[in-house]
Design a binder for these strands. Structure first.
Length: 457
RNA sequence: GUGGUUGUAGCUCAGCUGGUUAGAGCGCUGGUUUGUGGCACCAGAGGUCGUCGGUUCGAACCCGAUCUUCCACCCCA
C-alpha cells in the first residue's frame, strides 16, 4: 500500500488563516452594507433537485452543472437500452440532485415555496458558495462565493438606484476608487435591434457587440454578418458603437435614435429615472457610466443591467446584476418582478491583492501571549490568562514547556503584539512582565495596568 | 466542451546535446545565547523529479497516457 499525495479537485482552493482574515474583511464589508440597506440574510442548501436547476441557465449552463450521483445502487434504474441512447438518457436515472450553480435560482425557488409567509417586497441577501464545472482560469474557479442581494415584488426603480449606492459604498470601504459601474437596459438593446431592422435579434446582437473591447469593431461587423445581420443593419449600428459623452448626452442621443421604438424609449426613460433617483438622494453620478453595448445575462434580464469593472487590473468584472421580470414564473408564480446583483468575492480578493489594498493588520487575532519558565509559572500564567480573557483581551498561553526563545518565536511568527512572561519574580510581586514586541519595551506591571496597556495600544 | 501551456525540497526556481551520490535562495529544526523574538554566524533535516507506462546499457531530460496549473475560444463572478 503506497502513500498517496493528497490533492484538491480542479478549480478548488483551501483558505488558510491569512486568506480567511482577508476574505472576512471583504465579506464583513459587504454584509454590513446589505444590512444597512434593509436586506435580510437567507441560506439555501448546497444541493438542489436537478429539476430545479436544469433548463434555467441555457444549454451551456446545464453542461456546467455538477450532478450528484444517487446514493446506493445508482445504476438500478438504468437499462441497457438507455445506455445506447447516450448520456442524456442515462443522466436523469443516475442523478436527481445537483450542486447549486448560482444563488438566484435557489432564491426564486425559495420565494415560490414560501410565498404565503413572505412580506413583499422581499429584500434578501445571500452569501454562499456556488459550483460550476467550468475550466478554471485566473479569477475563475469551480467553487466560488457569490454575494447576492435581490428585491422581489416591486418594479420600483429605487431598487436599481440603491444597487448603485451599495456598490459604491462597498467598493469605497474596500479602498477601490478606479472603477466603473456600467449600466444599461435590456429594453434599449431591444430597441436598437428594432431600429436597425433586425427585431428580436438582440441576443445575437449583444453576444457580438460584447466583444467590441476585445476584438474591435471590424471583427464584430464580420461576426454580425455571419449571424445573418444585413449590411444595412450593421451600418445603422455605427453611431451606437461610436457613442461618446456623459450619461445625459448619451441618453439624449438614444431618445433620438430610438425614436421609432416604443420599447427602446421605455428603456431610456427607466435609465433616466434611476439617475433622477440618485439626484433626489443627494448623490452624484460618480462611477456610473451608461454603456449602451453592455449586454449580459440576457436569458433572463428584462430591464436594468449592471456590471462593475475595476480599471487597470487583469480580472474581469467583480460584480453584476439586473432586473428580471418573471424570475419565479418557471416555478409557477407569475408576475413577481425582481432586481438584484452579486459581488464576486473571489475576484474582489484577487483585485485587492493585485492593487495591494488589503490593510496590514487583519492577521492580529491574539493580543497577548503568556510565556513561562516552569510549572509554577505555568500555573500562575493560567490564572493570568483567564483574567485577560475576562477582560475581553484575546489571549493565549504557550502550551508546552519550552525555551524562552521558542516561545517568543511563536509570538513573533503569529504577529502577537504583546508577550507576558511569568517567572519567580513576577509571582513573588504578584505582577506580570509585559513586553511590546514592536518596540521591545518591557515593563513590570500589575495585571490591571497590563490590560490597560494592551487595550490602549 | 475545443486548442495550447505548466509540473524538480514547505515556497521561488537552477539543472547543458540523456551519463555516477539532483542544486541554490528563502523557510524549517538545532546550536552560538538554560530570563527574552526579529539580526548575524555555524550545523542539520527535508526530493517516489506530478502519476502510470514505454524507448534506452542508462531518463528530471526522449515518447505515450493521465492528473494538475496557467492561457485563448465558448461562457461567466
Amino acid at each position: 500500500m503506497s502513500i498517496q499525495k493528497p490533492t484538491l479537485p480542479k478549480g478548488t482552493r483551501d483558505f488558510g488563516p491569512k486568506q480567511m482574515a482577508r476574505r472576512n474583511y471583504i465579506l464583513d464589508t459587504i454584509k454590513a452594507t446589505f444590512k444597512l440597506f434593509g436586506y435580510q440574510q437567507l441560506e439555501t442548501p448546497s444541493m438542489e433537485n436537478l429539476s430545479v436547476l436544469t433548463g434555467k441557465y441555457g444549454d451551456e449552463g446545464d453542461q456546467l452543472l455538477f450532478k450528484i450521483l444517487n446514493s446506493g445502487d445508482f445504476l438500478k434504474k438504468v437499462k441497457t437500452a438507455d445506455l445506447e441512447k447516450g448520456p442524456s438518457q442515462v443522466l436523469p436515472k443516475v442523478a436527481e440532485k445537483g450542486l447549486r450553480y448560482d444563488l438566484t435560482v435557489p432564491f426564486a425557488r425559495y420565494v415560490v415555496m414560501n410565498r404565503n409567509e413572505l412580506t413583499f417586497p422581499f429584500k434578501r441577501f445571500q452569501i454562499q458558495p456556488v459550483w460550476r464545472a467550468d475550466r478554471p482560469q485566473k479569477g475563475r474557479y469551480r467553487e466560488f462565493y457569490q454575494c447576492d442581494a435581490d428585491v422581489v415584488g416591486t418594479d420600483s426603480l429605487i431598487c436599481e438606484a440603491e444597487i448603485l449606492l451599495m456598490i459604491r459604498r462597498v467598493l469605497a470601504q474596500l479602498g477601490l476608487n478606479n472603477y466603473d459601474i456600467k449600466v444599461n437596459n435590456r429594453k434599449v438593446l431591444t430597441g436598437i435591434s428594432e431600429v436597425i431592422g433586425e427585431p428580436g435579434k438582440e441576443s445575437a446582437l449583444c453576444v457580438s457587440i460584447d466583444k467590441l473591447d476585445k476584438i474591435g469593431w471590424e471583427k464584430v461587423q464580420e461576426e454580425l454578418q455571419q449571424r445573418g445581420f444585413t449590411t444595412d443593419a450593421v451600418a445603422k449600428l455605427e453611431p451606437i458603437i461610436d457613442l461618446k459623452g456623459n450619461n445625459q448626452e448619451k441618453l439624449d442621443f438614444l431618445k433620438e435614435f430610438l425614436n421609432s421604438s416604443q420599447e427602446g424609449l421605455k428603456g431610456v426613460e427607466e435609465l433616466e429615472e434611476v439617475l433622477e433617483i440618485l439626484k433626489h438622494s443627494g448623490e452624484d453620478e460618480n462611477h456610473v457610466e451608461l454603456d449602451v453595448v453592455l449586454a449580459r445575462g440576457l436569458s433572463y434580464y428584462t430591464g436594468a443591467i449592471f456590471e462593475v469593472k475595476v480599471n487597470n487590473v487583469s480580472i474581469g468584472s467583480i460584480s453584476g446584476g439586473g432586473r428580471y421580470d418573471n424570475l419565479t414564473g418557471v416555478f409557477g408564480l407569475e408576475g413577481v418582478s425582481g432586481v438584484g446583483f452579486s459581488f464576486g468575492v473571489d475576484r474582489i480578493y484577487d483585485v485587492l491583492e493585485e492593487l495591494s489594498l488589503f490593510p496590514e493588520d487583519q492577521m492580529q487575532s491574539t493580543a497577548v501571549m503568556i510565556g513561562y519558565f516552569d510549572e509554577e509559572g505555568r500555573n500562575y500564567g493560567l490564572k493570568v490568562l483567564n483574567q485577560f480573557r475576562s477582560a475581553e483581551v484575546a489571549a493565549e498561553i504557550y502550551p508546552d514547556y519550552a525555551k524562552v526563545k521558542k516561545q517568543f518565536n511563536y509570538a513573533d511568527k503569529k504577529q502577537i503584539p504583546f508577550v507576558v512572561m511569568i517567572g519567580s519574580e513576577e509571582i513573588a510581586q504578584n505582577m506580570v512582565s509585559l513586553k511590546n514586541l514592536d518596540t521591545s519595551e518591557q515593563k513590570m506591571l500589575s495585571l490591571e495596568d497590563a490590560i490597560l496597556a494592551i487595550k490602549n495600544k
